[in-house]
Design a protein around this nucleic acid. Sequence first.
DNA 1: ACCTAATTGCGAAAGATTCGCACTTACTCA
DNA 2: TGAGTAAGTGCGAATCTTTCGCAATTAGGT
Lengths: 137, 137
Amino acid sequence: MAEPHELREKGLRLTPQRELVLSAVRSLGHATPEDVAERVRQTHPGINLSTVYRNLETLENVGLVQHTHLGHGGATYHAAEAKLHAHLTCERCGVLIEVPIEETSLLTQSLLNDYGFHTDLEHLAISGRCEDCFEKP
Amino acid sequence: MAEPHELREKGLRLTPQRELVLSAVRSLGHATPEDVAERVRQTHPGINLSTVYRNLETLENVGLVQHTHLGHGGATYHAAEAKLHAHLTCERCGVLIEVPIEETSLLTQSLLNDYGFHTDLEHLAISGRCEDCFEKP
DNA sequence: ACCTAATTGCGAAAGATTCGCACTTACTCA
DNA sequence: TGAGTAAGTGCGAATCTTTCGCAATTAGGT
Ligand SMILES: [Mn+2]
Ligand SMILES: [Mn+2]
Ligand SMILES: [Zn+2]
Ligand SMILES: [Zn+2]
């Protein structure tokens, strides 16, 4: 018996669209649904945008991808990896910096102690100004 | 000469709509444009939603209000006050906790040292689980 | 191969925000 | 004080993003 495909292991049907959505997320790093659709269309031109949305949601439900909000609006997706990271995003130029989660433990610890709040730094990025953008306002 | 109205001081024209939008933001605490519109309509039923959007933007430009993103989507507005605060928001129940900015200084300091990143905790909320929602998942 | 439920494509709907433009109004200053 | 002018408003339509309903297709179990 061959080892089952990772999608099948999660109890999902293996469709070309689903596989392509997952690999698009993985290769793009952090991508909007529209980005993902565009990438998938390179090998599967007919894919519908709603199929992309639905698969992103499905893949997130089984823990293969995650979404985060980098700026003012919508979601961007990235592969769920072993190493968690927080997102820093420059509100000027949009650059994205990934920070090992340990870097934030002092904050999360004190929010827990003082407010009983369990911080999830994956979901919403931390906004601010990158070094370059801070220097030349 | 009477002291000029605060809106006039900022170089803005004083219209009933604008004044009402500002006072709605102040009294509501944290509110969506729709919330603001609803409040304003209590005394000025005819106000148009696009007038609300435009005034929120204008008021933000002159520093009287600020917007922040509490959840997955749109903006909520609050009055720009002397005391800065970070926003904690529960991704389960939506409760909002305001945290004095000092509470976060260890994090912002280390992000600055390690990444040259100037954190703005006003713009994007910190996501997580409140105490209640963490206990009963 | 066959059956069934999951998945897809499609078009429409919904929700949020922005825009163009003609009309109104707050302020300037003669 | 009363034009004149530019800022502000209302209205409707346009955009943009995300979601839905439904009929047609297809993956996986038997
Ligand atoms: Mn924003
Ligand atoms: Mn989200
Ligand atoms: Zn930058
Ligand atoms: Zn909660």
